[in-house]
């Protein structure tokens, strides 16, 4: 449901690299937002209404908002100096089922552009694009960005996405009383734009819990790829949130139903990776499923949660009956 990503540069230059981050979390509220409220909440700019879907799972996508950038891009060790980039990043909020909020930020990188910072009007006319004023190798930018090591001088799109998510905190319907504890999901992605080349991709999960997606693809498929990453981030977050709730319920001294009830009612119905998956990305998702088997893992985790709830219920009934007999 991406807004069209038009030709980025009116001068005809095409970005060689596109970098992005998707941050995923539970909306800071006890109950999901109804569709109508969600559409109001995600109207982040006056005068533009968000895009939305009702079926098969409600989803609202905010208009893009833009962030000014003048910073460095990370490169791998030994790859020389970090190029300086100037321009704007775009970011949007995506709310799924009124309850799962994502901040999705990205920036298109033009290499071999101008050698100095130009008047700001130049960058304001090329929204969502940064221009590197030093030479850089596209492959180094992809690798450097996916390392995910950020400091105050290199691009931090995760922070951009988190800022967009925080804009929802001031919506009146949001009561800041979620009943489920979850961790923020982080995904970084990087595209090496290769027109006419065979697309290839790699999804990687490291022990820092952050997903990394690397792909070489023609520019035409960028909007679809962004949606793929948002869907992957959402479902990876769902899986982690449910598994963590299950593990917490097994800990000593906890009321298991205090963890399992909200987990089931918040998350149980959410799994549907193909709901809004663009047609062009179905093959990639299928390959990912064949290897990582995310859907199998989800089903088995839901089964464990439900089994446990059943056992707890039976135990409670038996205890009640026992009391009556005594």
């Amino acid at each position: 449901m991406a807004r069209p990503v038009g030709p980025s540069d009116p001068g005809g230059q095409r970005p060689q690299v596109v970098l992005g981050a998707v941050t995923t979390g539970l909306l800071n509220t006890s109950e999901p937002l109804p569709l109508e409220a969600a559409r109001q909440a995600l109207a982040l700019l006056p005068g533009v209404s968000p895009d939305w879907h009702r079926h098969p799972i409600e989803q609202v996508v905010s208009p893009d908002i833009f962030f000014g950038l003048d910073c460095r891009l990370a490169v791998p060790p030994g790859a020389g100096s970090q190029p300086r980039v100037i321009g704007t990043a775009r970011a949007r909020a995506v709310l799924t089922a009124g309850h799962i909020l994502q901040g999705s930020a990205r920036v298109e990188v033009l290499l071999d552009a101008n050698r100095r910072r130009l008047p700001w009007a130049h960058y304001a006319a090329r929204t969502g694009v940064v221009e590197a004023i030093n030479r850089a190798d596209p492959a180094d930018l992809v690798t450097g960005f996916l390392q995910g090591a950020v400091n105050s001088t290199v691009l931090d799109l995760g922070k951009t996405g988190a800022y967009v998510m925080s804009l929802l905190d001031r919506v009146p319907q949001i009561d800041r009383q979620p009943r489920l504890k979850t961790e923020t999901g982080r995904l970084l992605w990087a595209v090496h734009v290769q027109d006419g080349a065979e697309p290839d991709s790699l999804v990687e999960l490291r022990d820092d819990g952050m997903l990394r997606v690397r792909i070489g693809t023609p520019a035409e498929l960028l909007p679809q790829f962004v949606e793929f990453c948002e869907i992957l981030a959402l479902h990876h977050w769902l899986l982690s949130a449910l598994r963590n709730a299950f593990e917490r319920s097994n800990r000593r001294g906890r009321r298991p139903e205090g963890e399992l009830d909200p987990a089931l009612s918040y998350l149980g119905h959410m799994w549907n990776p193909e709901a809004h998956l663009p047609h062009e990305m179905r093959g990639l998702w299928q390959r990912l499923e064949n290897e990582a088997q995310l859907t199998w893992e989800w089903k088995s985790t839901v089964t464990r949660v439900r089994d446990k709830v059943s056992l707890l219920t039976r135990k409670a009934i038996e205890e009640a009956l026992h009391k009556e007999v005594v």
Binding site: F67, G68, V150, S152, T153, L155, D156
Partner: peptide, 10 residues
């Protein structure tokens, strides 16, 4: 307008 080398996304 971002400060030179002073705006990295947040």
């Amino acid at each position: 307008e971002p400060f030179p080398e002073g705006a990295n996304g947040g």
